[in-house]
Simulated scan of single mutants.
Amino acid sequence: MSLAKFSEVLTNLGCSVEIDDRTLLIDIDDKKVFLEVDDVWIKSINHFYRAKQYSFNPDIRVLTSNNFVEFQIVRLDPNFIPRPEFEFTDDKGSLLTITRASNEFVLSHYSSTAYEYLFDYVKRKIEKRSERLKARKNGRLRIRFDDLFFNPFTAKYTPKPKLSKEKIEVVGKEKIKACLFNLAYAKGECWELRDDIKAKHFQHLQPELEEEPLKIPNVKYDDDLVSFYKVAKSSQFPGQSYLSFYHVLEYNFLRVADEILFNSVKTQLNKPNYKATESPRVHRRPVCLSQATLPDSFKLS
Rank of each mutant, 00 (worst) to 15 (best):
V62G: 10
D195S: 13
I19T: 12
K32H: 14
I28K: 10
F181P: 01
E116Q: 13
R124E: 15
Y115A: 03
Q206F: 08
G93Q: 06
G139E: 06
L225I: 07
E211H: 05
Y110E: 07
L249M: 14
F228L: 03
D20R: 02
E212T: 06
Y229F: 12
F145D: 06
V171F: 04
L107V: 12
L300M: 13
I168E: 04
I143F: 02
T89Q: 08
H247G: 02
E208I: 09
K187W: 01
P272T: 13
D147E: 15
N218K: 14
V33L: 11
H247S: 09
W41G: 04
R22E: 11
L118T: 10
H47L: 08
L225K: 09
D77M: 06
D258V: 01
P280V: 09
S55N: 10
K271I: 00
D120P: 00
V40A: 08
K173I: 01
D20C: 06
F71C: 12
A101G: 11
R142W: 06
N252K: 14
E192S: 14
K271M: 11
D258A: 10
A292E: 13
L76H: 00
L289K: 03
D258L: 09
E36P: 04
E259K: 03
R284K: 10
D147M: 07
S227L: 01
N138M: 08
L118F: 13
R194I: 03
V69A: 11
D223Y: 02
E131N: 09
N252A: 11
N182R: 14
L141T: 08
N66Y: 02
S55K: 09
L10E: 09
S241T: 08
F262D: 01
K215L: 15
V219C: 03
T11E: 14
Y246N: 09
Q53G: 09
H201D: 14
F71L: 08
T158M: 09
V248N: 02
A292G: 10
D21L: 00
P207L: 10
I216W: 09
L249Y: 07
F245L: 10
V248K: 03
N273I: 00
K230T: 04
S241V: 00
H247A: 10
Y185I: 03
A257D: 03
D29K: 15
F56W: 01
S112P: 14
I197Q: 11
T64H: 02
R281T: 12
F56R: 02
K156Y: 00
D20E: 12
E166T: 13
D258W: 00
